[in-house]
Amino acid sequence: MAFLAGMLQQSVAQEGENSWEKAQHQDGEWYASAEAQRIADNVLLYQHDNGGWYKNIDMADKLTSAEKDSLRSLKSKSVGTTIDNGATHTQLRYLAKVYEATGRKEYKEAFLEGIDYLLKAQYDNGGWPQFYPIREGYYEHITYNDGAMIGVMELLRNISKNNKPYNFVNAGRRKKAKEAIEKGLEVILATQVKVDGKLTIWCAQHDKDDYSPAKARAYELPSLSGKESTGIVEYLLKIENPSEEVKRSIRSAVKWFEAHKVMGEKVVWVKDTSYVEGYDRVVIKDDAGGPLWGRFNDIKTGTPIFVGRDGIIKQHLADIEQERRVGYNYIDNYAEDLLKREYPEWEKKY
Rank of each mutant, 00 (worst) to 15 (best):
S76D: 09
A218R: 09
S249R: 07
H25G: 12
P129Q: 12
G147S: 08
E234P: 00
K97W: 07
L8K: 12
D146R: 01
Q192V: 04
Y350R: 08
K255W: 14
Q26E: 15
G52E: 04
L112W: 11
K340L: 11
D280C: 03
W256F: 13
H25D: 14
R135V: 11
A101Q: 09
K266L: 00
D41A: 03
S249E: 11
L189F: 01
N241M: 06
F168H: 04
Q47D: 04
A23G: 13
G197T: 05
A253Y: 08
S70P: 10
E323F: 06
P304G: 08
Y350W: 13
V246P: 02
K271D: 12
A66S: 12
Y138A: 09
Y123C: 02
R325F: 01
G16S: 09
K340M: 15
T273P: 11
Y219L: 05
K77M: 14
F131M: 12
M149K: 00
D58C: 10
T143G: 05
G127R: 12
I142M: 02
G290I: 11
T301N: 02
F3S: 14
I57G: 10
D332L: 09
N163R: 15
A60D: 09
G302S: 04
R295A: 13
N42M: 03
G151T: 02
K183S: 08
V169N: 03
L317S: 10
T303H: 15
K314I: 02
Q24T: 10
D146G: 10
R93N: 14
G184V: 02
T301D: 04
E336M: 02
Q122F: 02
R217N: 06
I57A: 05
W269E: 09
A32I: 06
N297G: 08
T301A: 06
E321Q: 14
S249V: 04
S76M: 07
A23F: 06
E234G: 01
P222D: 03
Y144V: 01
L189Y: 02
I232Q: 00
V326S: 01
I232C: 00
R295H: 14
D298C: 08
I201L: 04
V193S: 09
R135C: 09
L155C: 10
G226S: 03
K105R: 15
D298V: 00
A218G: 03
K261M: 10
Y138Q: 11
L199C: 12
T303W: 13
M7E: 11
L221R: 05
F111N: 07
D84I: 07
G308P: 06
Q9V: 11
K348E: 13
N158C: 13
K161N: 14
T102W: 07
Y99K: 05
G127W: 07
I239W: 01
N85G: 00
